[in-house]
């Protein structure tokens, strides 16, 4: 049975202390000015009363990740065994086409490596059986990480216990694997996914790829055919002249 890693954020337990952000920075040595995770503080007035909600966020490791589709170099990929969206540093060209494709603005260019950086659910840590750095350090224990396909995991239990929501809209739903608990509060617009960029060029290539492949194949086979015919013709000719000589 394959795994399905998910992140749960209980916004009622988050206190915007930024521990997750610094822990991530220390763990992955992200350069100043960029972070792989964040906490959004949303404040508004409702019936004359101020309101504040807190949303810890990071790459949502979507099932239908637009960043993968957008990546022209094949560096962005989804790991089949657990569903996390990763980035192959050795392949990434740093072209930044995936940045506008992400509805959650989770991707950025690391100026030190000139490759794209983003949350990996701490893949090297979880591969060793450790919790992601943000989860381990979370002061309010607002973040919980685990395998949704394992019925005995904490995330499975919590998903069962409470009503969780995902940051999706009617327009943008790319199957995020990050869940939020808001105790029934509606999600504010500030944290909702952005209309992302689906490139026309991708659609063009959907035609160019098969047409090109068929064209190439047909061309090769056509001339292969012509060669065969020629060969047959020459053999006939040789036979004919031999017959003539015999006569």
């Amino acid at each position: 049975m394959t795994k399905k890693y998910v992140m749960l954020a209980d916004t009622t337990r988050c206190i915007n202390c930024k521990a997750c952000v610094v822990a991530c920075r220390a763990e992955w040595e992200t350069p100043m000015g960029h972070t792989r995770d964040w906490v959004k503080e949303v404040e508004w007035v409702q019936n004359d009363q101020p309101k504040v909600m807190l949303f810890p966020g990071r790459c949502q490791h979507c099932d239908d990740a637009p960043c993968i589709e957008a990546c022209p170099s094949g560096a962005a990929y989804k790991r089949e065994e657990d569903g996390i969206v990763l980035l192959d540093n050795g392949i990434c060209s740093g072209c930044e086409l995936c940045i506008p494709a992400c509805p959650y603005e989770a991707r950025w260019l690391n100026p030190e490596t000139n490759t794209i950086s983003k949350c990996t659910f701490c893949q090297p840590r979880i591969d060793e059986g450790l919790a992601p750095a943000c989860v381990q350090t979370c002061v309010g224990r607002a973040l919980v990480f685990g395998d949704k396909n394992d019925p005995n995991s904490e995330v499975s239990r919590l998903l069962e216990e409470k009503t969780w929501v995902k940051l999706t809209t009617d327009e943008v739903n790319v199957g995020p694997n990050h869940y939020y608990y808001t105790a029934g509060e509606a999600l504010p617009d500030e944290v909702m996914p952005k209309q992302y960029d689906r490139h026309l060029s991708g659609k063009v290539m959907e035609i160019v790829n098969p047409v090109g492949a068929i064209g190439l194949g047909a061309m090769l086979l056509t001339f292969l055919g012509a060669g065969v015919i020629k060969l047959v013709g020459r053999r006939n000719e040789v036979c004919a002249s031999e017959n003539k000589e015999e006569k």
Binding site: A213, L216, G217, A218, L221, T222, L224, G225, V228
Partner: peptide, 10 residues
């Protein structure tokens, strides 16, 4: 035959 076969293969 050759052309058809080639296209089919492709």
């Amino acid at each position: 035959g050759a052309t058809a076969g080639g296209t089919a293969l492709t």
